Amino acid sequence: MKLRPLNKIWPGDNMERMLVSACLGLIPGAYYILIIKVLPELLDYGSAGYIFLQLLGMFLFSNLMSNFIMCVLVDPSIDPSTMGSPLEREKQPREWHECKKCDIWAPPRSHHCKICDVCVLKRDHHCNFTGCCVGHANYRYFFYFVIYMLISSLVAFIASLVFVYFLRGGSYKFVLLPFANGLYDVREVFNEKGELNVKELLKSVIPSQFEMVFAVLFGLNWVVLFSTICFLYQRWPILISGVTWYELRTKNFNYDRGLRLNLQMIFGSRMSLSWISPFISSPLPHDGIHWMSEDKDAGDGN
């Protein structure tokens, strides 16, 4: 496994820096709010359901962050020392192509990324949220990050709905709009003499710090849940057909090797265990370079 150089891990684009920082900050923040603030009100401390949700939250959070970090750290780019120079063109198969920017003769399915300024093996796309390209070497971590993001946002969405509308909605009059909260508590801002209590009025109209933070996270949860559903729906053929995003758009299914082998090309030979943790070794059954010759050999063997 080749890791990216330390000086290239942090993205140079300001928008990508903001998105990467948001992932590194909002995911732990949402986890803290849900586990520390929401979960104790959903279930009794120490109950079977409480322990289950706490363990589930720990599992999802650890996989979210670790797959995100591994996707950023693992280098999917081509090692120029293993590729031939353009002068060796006649020695390479016709499916290879010349990259003048990298000054190498690149293998099939690889493409040059203008942002990363490198050629990437089996390049799918450049992800702005990780600040790096997604390709042959880090495909596994990216897909698990997206899948666990979907599961986590769905669990958080359900828990938040119960928390807002069934618990805080009745007992604590928790609402997301501060002025609506003021209408609910309008009778509490007057004292016994009928005089207006400005302090109580402001307390009723202006939400607490926790309410504001929770409202922002709740709104973002909607966005993340909808976005990940759309993304996975759009990218699902990549898992099934073993194609990249570019190949999917151009309807190039020449590298489809069947469902099981296609999944192994992404999640590795130990894909039945790789979902547990990104630190579980699951070697890819291909070097990402000699696609045509090795695909034929593998197909004959199966």
Rank of each mutant, 00 (worst) to 15 (best):
V155W: 02
L150P: 14
L154C: 14
Y184V: 06
M149T: 13
L183R: 13
Y165D: 01
D185G: 08
L183S: 09
S153Y: 07
V155Q: 10
K173P: 08
F163Q: 02
Y184H: 06
A180C: 03
L154N: 13
I151Y: 05
M149Q: 14
S152F: 10
G169Y: 04
I158E: 05
A159I: 00
S153T: 14
G170W: 07
G182Q: 06
K173Q: 12
G170A: 10
V164H: 10
L167V: 03
F179C: 11
L150T: 08
V164F: 05
Y184A: 09
V162T: 02
N181G: 15
L161W: 00
A159G: 01
L154S: 15
S160R: 02
A159P: 01
G170D: 10
G170R: 12
I158V: 15
A159N: 01
F179H: 13
L183W: 03
V155G: 12
G170Q: 10
A180Y: 04
Y165E: 03
L183E: 05
L177H: 13
S153K: 10
L167T: 03
M149A: 14
S171I: 00
V162F: 01
L161E: 00
N181D: 04
A180L: 02
N181R: 15
Y165N: 06
Y172T: 15
F166C: 06
G182F: 03
L177E: 07
F163S: 03
L183N: 11
L150F: 12
R168G: 15
D185I: 01
I158P: 11
F163C: 00
L183G: 13
V164P: 08
L154V: 14
V164S: 09
I158R: 08
Y184K: 14
K173H: 13
L150Y: 08
F157M: 08
V175Y: 04
F174T: 14
N181S: 15
R168D: 08
F166N: 09
L177R: 09
L154F: 15
S171K: 11
S160D: 02
G170H: 11
G169M: 03
Y172R: 15
L176I: 05
P178I: 00
L176F: 05
V175F: 02
M149G: 15
M149Y: 12
I151V: 14
M149D: 12
L161G: 15
A159M: 05
I151H: 07
A180P: 03
L177C: 09
Y165H: 04
G170I: 06
A156T: 01
L167W: 04
M149R: 10
F163W: 04
S160K: 01
A159K: 00
N181I: 02
V155S: 12
Y148H: 15
F174C: 09
F163I: 00
L154E: 09
A180D: 04
L161C: 09
I151T: 10
V162Y: 03
S171L: 03
S160P: 04
V155T: 14
F157R: 10
A159D: 02
L183F: 09
Y165T: 02
S152W: 10
P178M: 01
A180H: 06
D185S: 13
K173I: 00
F174W: 12
Y148R: 13
M149K: 11
S153I: 04
A159V: 01
K173T: 07
G182S: 08
F157H: 14
Y148L: 07
Y172A: 14
K173F: 05
L161I: 02
